[in-house]
Each structure stands twice: as structure tokens, then as C-alpha cells.
Computed example of a mutant assay.
Amino acid sequence: MDINPTASLRYLGRPEGRIAYTDAGTGPLVVAVPGMGDLRSTYDDLVPALVAAGHRVVVADLRGHGDSDTTFRTHGDVATGTDLVALVEHLDAGPAVLVGSSMGGSAAVWAAAQRPELVRGLVLLAPHLRETASPAQARTYRLLYRALFVRPWGAAAWASLYTSMFAKGRKSSRHAEHVAQIRRSMSDPAHLRSFRDLAVALDHSVIEPLVPSVEAPSLVVVGELDPDYKDAGAELGRMRDALGGDQLLVPGVGHYPQHQAPEVVTPAVVEFLAGLPAARHDDERDGADERGARA
């Protein structure tokens, strides 16, 4: 299932399977990853604008999602972070700006903290930089996910939740098509199993202690109706202060601002990327080191 046939579909081999990604444009590298239960097409409004602005844009599916293999046994923020690192290294065109939605943003923060030399910027769309559920709540959620995301109702249940709970507020013109793609993907038993395994495994507590070590400039974008936050504006301010970056609160949308309000989010991302310092590649750094040694 090639979600975006306009860009070339490629694969990155990992120890437990392959990660699918598309590669479009030329210029400074941008690597994007969706959130749990989502597909590469969540970025279909953003990618053309970034390519037109002179960027090479690579969009990867999560493990067990979309065109990625369903053979993975390990899922979560850290696993996705290692995939981002491996992908940037494989492309050999970094450092990259990492774009992450929801848990994809958490994974991008993990990558920036662990491998700062590979990351020159972060665009975090409704990210989770801490675990807000209590241990008791987390156990309840896991029981719910195990019961809800199974055949024969799992795909329909997630498609309904995606729209009714997480995509609160205004919908994009392609919302119905996007959710239909998600439902078709989840109708495959292997994809549904991978999605359920990820939902059960998610624990953002590993991210919070890493946030202070992130040096990359950041833009955090949150929808004001996002149900994942008790107070979206307050949580956005907390994340901005923790990262020392820029923020954007998008009115009238929920958990997917890049998909629900691309006319607001896309220009902000393009402007943020334009303001980043130019990337210094290894050959440039080596030349600077040699000049310094001769001085």
C-alpha cells in the first residue's frame, strides 16, 4: 500500500524488519514520522510546501504501520527514536530537522538528546514530553487497548476514535480519505496487531529526563482542543519552556494540527526552517578543524 505515490517508496532495513519511507525534493534534510495509528499521509499537506521551499523531505511509516513491515516485536518512543537515528545515518545527508507527530515527536526528542550531531532542528506536533497517566491509569488504558483494538471491530474503533476524539474541531478537506486509508490499513490483522502492541507498550516517562539535554532549536505546535492535554495552552507553555524553543497554539483543532489546519501550520514550519542556521556537514567541520590546527 503506497500511501503517497508521488514520492519514491524506499525501505530501511532494521534488525526486526523494514521501515518504509518516501523521499522527495533536494536540499537540507527533513525527516518526518507520524504518531501512533497514523500514516505518512498525515503530512501530505506539509511535504509539497517544504519541497517547494528547497528541502529534501523524507517521511517514514512507524513500525508495523502503513508500508513498514509488521514483523517488529519492539515498539514505542525509544524504538522509533532509534529508527529515526538509523534513517538519518542511512541517508548520509544530515544533520536533519526531525518532524514528529504525537509519539513521533517524543521519538524525535529522544533522537535529538541521544545523537545531537544528527539533529539541527525539531518540529514537534502535539508531542508527549512526559507521562501524564498515573500507574493505575496506565494499567487501565492497556487493558482497554487489548480489548478494543482486536478483530473484528478494532479497525472501525480506531477510525471512529481518530475522528470523534482526537481530530476534534475542524476537519481538512481530505479527512474522510485519510481516515479511510487508516481503516483499510488496520483491517489487515498484522497491522492491527502491531498497532495494538504499540498502544500497549507506550510509556513516555523515558522522555522527560532527556528534555533538558536537547540543544536543537524547536517549534512545538499544539491544537487548542487536543484531548491528550488537560489544558493544551498550559502544556504547550511548559514544553516551550522546557525546550527553550518556539510555540504555536492552533485554535479550533485537536491532536493533528498539521492535518486539520495545514493553512496555519505549514507556513509556520516553513518559516521556522528558514530561520535555522545552515547545516555544517562533516567535510566542512573537518576543513575548519584543519585550518584551526594550522593557525
Rank of each mutant, 00 (worst) to 15 (best):
A293H: 14
D188V: 13
W110K: 00
R120W: 04
G81P: 01
P189N: 12
V78T: 09
T132L: 12
V97Y: 08
E263A: 14
R56G: 06
Q258W: 02
P277E: 15
A93Y: 00
L219G: 10
R146T: 09
T140I: 05
R130V: 15
S185C: 09
A32R: 02
M36H: 15
L148G: 02
V200M: 05
E235C: 08
M103E: 11
T163G: 11
N4Y: 06
P28A: 15
T163V: 11
D197A: 15
P227M: 14
H65M: 12
A261D: 12
L124I: 06
L84T: 02
A147W: 12
A60K: 01
D69T: 08
L39G: 09
L143S: 12
P262V: 04
H175K: 03
F72I: 07
R151F: 04
P257Q: 07
G292W: 11
A288K: 02
E208C: 05
V200R: 14
H178Y: 15
I182G: 03
R115H: 11
H128K: 07
Q114S: 11
A112S: 01
D2S: 07
T42K: 04
A288T: 06
V221C: 11
V59L: 08
E215Q: 10
Y141N: 10
L9S: 10
G275W: 07
S194W: 06
V109L: 03
G13Y: 01
H178D: 03
G76P: 07
